[in-house]
Design a protein around this nucleic acid. Structure first.
Lengths: 249, 249
DNA sequence: TGTACAGATTGACGCAACGTCAATGTCAAG
DNA sequence: CTTGACATTGACGTTGCGTCAATCTGTACA
């Protein structure tokens, strides 16, 4: 006694396409094939299908299901491994949910788009904690207030200046300039001026110490390194800045 | 000033393959292409890439990222929609985790494989609540105890008898037998005997009422229907059993 | 018996986001 | 000139089917 594919599909709540797929991948063959190629399934095939669907309902992959049904893989093993998977996944999602929520909260408070405002020398959103820890809370608050007092156009202008500076560093390095060369030091001066310009309204002036500390951050932090052409570029910038601080400040 | 693809990859922690992919799908084109076909990226491309990676890190799809970057989709919208997604997914995983844990617990208690033990007329694991509600808790406990007292071989033998009965029902129906026919009624008798055999040790005997109630369940519940050849088959079985109960019990 | 119409078959593409060869061209260094 | 590192463009693999498309089969009705 057997039934055509559609009946089996309806009986088990799947589709004929799924059954054909299971046949293709060798997971469940029909118990009989008519001379016209039609598939028919009997009780035992139905039973096997029910086991498949049970495992599938638990989220097990077809491959592992095949292993279990062929007695090559113990159900307990498969389930335990899968359970770990699920738990890890759920945790990952939890972290992502937190991140998305945090990002949404920022957006609601109107905190400038997303990545442009990062990596400007001072940071106004993402690494707030880091910046506060490094240079003090008041410092951050002052800088942030100053930043917010600018129009978007001014902010972009300020950013672009920094981009130019970074690009010039890159060019100098590509041209084989020494860190202590006139050319490189000229860029460092502009870099320094740019920082000062943005720090006029702030509590702490840009000292030699400040400048050196900033320089040392560059190669260490990939986020800053990216802004200066990778670790190599950042290292070059660090050297240039360090020399500038020693000589001029 | 720009950098070759490998530098950009290292700077941002991705791979060149990913960058080429983003180029292919129109998400991020290189700012310049050498005469040899090599890709080069400048500051603004790098910035765009950083935004892409930020969004990607939050789990947004490349398609939506493109929408956001092209100002066709508001970041807030995208994030909110995505947040729902994540939450739903996490909940789904939670349910699955519970299911897998329950299944594992069953396996540890040695409760017979998985699907074979279901749909035998009485159910010993999956639909315990349902069975208890239908026939009482004591009834279930007695049946369960009886079932457990059997050896696996005996259990399989008992199951196989039922499979034969189900198959015979199917054959009779396929042969066009009437529900009241001698042939069909003979199967119902065996079905009844089979039930009684398994109920000897139980508190409630298999009455006409019990038999009829069981019969009525068949077409209504797809899990039972599956066992008897779909809804049509189950309906046929129900009719045969009902007539048997009226005439003989 | 002709004609629908439902249901079956075998391809084969699509999806998401790249990983991973494969075959081959380029460029700086020894 | 050779070597080695890095680039390019295909194109398949992954996961589990959904979804056409083109074509038969089989049953039912006029």
């Amino acid at each position: 006694m057997d039934w055509p594919i559609q009946d089996i599909a309806r009986m088990t709540g799947t589709t004929s396409r799924t059954l054909r797929h299971y046949d293709d991948v060798g997971l469940l063959a029909p118990s009989r094939t008519g001379s016209n190629g039609y598939r028919f399934y009997d009780q035992s095939a139905l039973l096997r299908l029910q086991r498949i669907l049970l495992l599938r309902g638990l989220g097990i992959g077809l491959n592992d299901i095949a292993g279990v049904l062929n007695h090559e893989l113990e159900p307990e093993r498969a389930l335990q491994v899968h359970l770990r998977w699920l738990q890890d996944e759920q945790e990952r999602l939890g972290v992502q949910i937190a991140s998305v929520r945090a990002t949404l909260a920022k957006l609601e408070k109107g905190e400038q788009l997303m990545a442009e405002e990062m990596f400007n020398g001072f940071d106004h959103t993402e690494h707030r904690e880091e910046v506060e820890q490094r240079w003090g809370k008041d410092e951050y608050a002052a800088g942030d207030k100053w930043w917010r007092s600018k129009t978007p156009a001014q902010q972009r202008g300020y950013q672009r200046q920094h981009e130019d500076i970074a690009a010039d560093y890159g060019r100098a390095k590509a041209a084989g300039a020494e860190a202590g060369s006139e050319e490189a030091q000229a860029i460092a001066r502009r870099h320094f001026d740019w920082l000062q310009h943005g720090t006029q309204a702030r509590s702490t002036p840009v000292t030699a110490e400040y400048f050196s500390a900033l320089a040392r951050m560059y190669p260490a932090d990939p986020r800053f390194a990216a802004q200066y052409g990778g670790t190599d570029g950042a290292t070059f910038v660090r050297d240039v800045m360090t020399i500038y601080a020693q000589r001029e400040l």
